[in-house]
Amino acid sequence: MTNIIEVSQLTKKFKLQKPSSGLKSFFKPEYKNVTAVDRISFDIKKGERVAFIGPNGAGKSTTIKMLSSILYPTSGTALVNGLVPWDNRKKLAYDIGTVFGQRSQLWYNLPVQDSFALMGKIYDLDEIPFKRRLSKLVKLFEIRDLLEHPTRSLSLGQRMRCEIVASLLHKPQILFLDEPTIGLDVTAKEIIRNLIKKQALEEDTTLLLTSHDTDDMEKVCERVIIINKGKLIFNDSISALRDSYLNKKYIEVTTENGEKIKTVVNTKEKPAKQAIDELVKKYHVTDMTIENPPMEEIIKEIYNRG
């Protein structure tokens, strides 16, 4: 399979003004350079679903913004579907879709269907293929009931489904998703993950998904790239990460008298099911949560192992 994204030594530095008071800083401000992305290189094959994971401020969004032609890099090169993103912004826009969990591309006061129609015009979609495409996506993402509502009245989960539909209207080959599940509750997250994966498999869309939630990558992607402080520290399959670093489960149970008991299970030594059975036998459990290790711990582990 051919590479659809090729990144080589990509670097982005930001010049930030040092915070200081006084008149001198007004006339002669001092700046410091912050390296958000530090010489990262990786390839992504057509149809691959790749998670771009890292803690807050790791450089995930900055990388995705360079690949989607929003930001110019300080140095390094990148090819997205054969095009240098920052030199071919308009041309590349037809090949990519972008979803930013933290902001909306839909018009705030307009009904959702009007926003879609506007997107259709922006992407030069002809009337009949546009309607056919919209109808397919509306069915897939189950948003028929939301079409007549203005964006402002949608819940975060509903809005996110509409955002993804808006970004898929022109049938992009690559979909960049920047924190698509941020701020969503557990159920809404699960729905969004399933829909993203279903769509990508159905249309062979290449996915690059950033998140600081390890569940996003496990449920949607097949490969994971981890970056920390702008540097690439892991680039392998999800199963490789799972075998090496995601073999711990954090189990928290609440007993009938409200006591919370936390335990960590190494699934290589003991299956999670066995650990849960033991807890249930020992306590009268009224509630239970099972979580993967937090991102910070995985990164610490990667560094510890060199």
């Binding site: 032609s69 308009k90 041309k91 826009a93 990519i96 930013f100 591309q105 922006i122 992407y123």
Partner: peptide
């Protein structure tokens, strides 16, 4: 300031027009 310019930069039309 709030990054909403991103939405205009990822479309195939002239960003200034949009």
């Amino acid at each position: 300031d709030n990054g909403n310019l991103d939405n205009f930069l990822t479309t195939p039309k002239n960003s200034l027009f949009l």
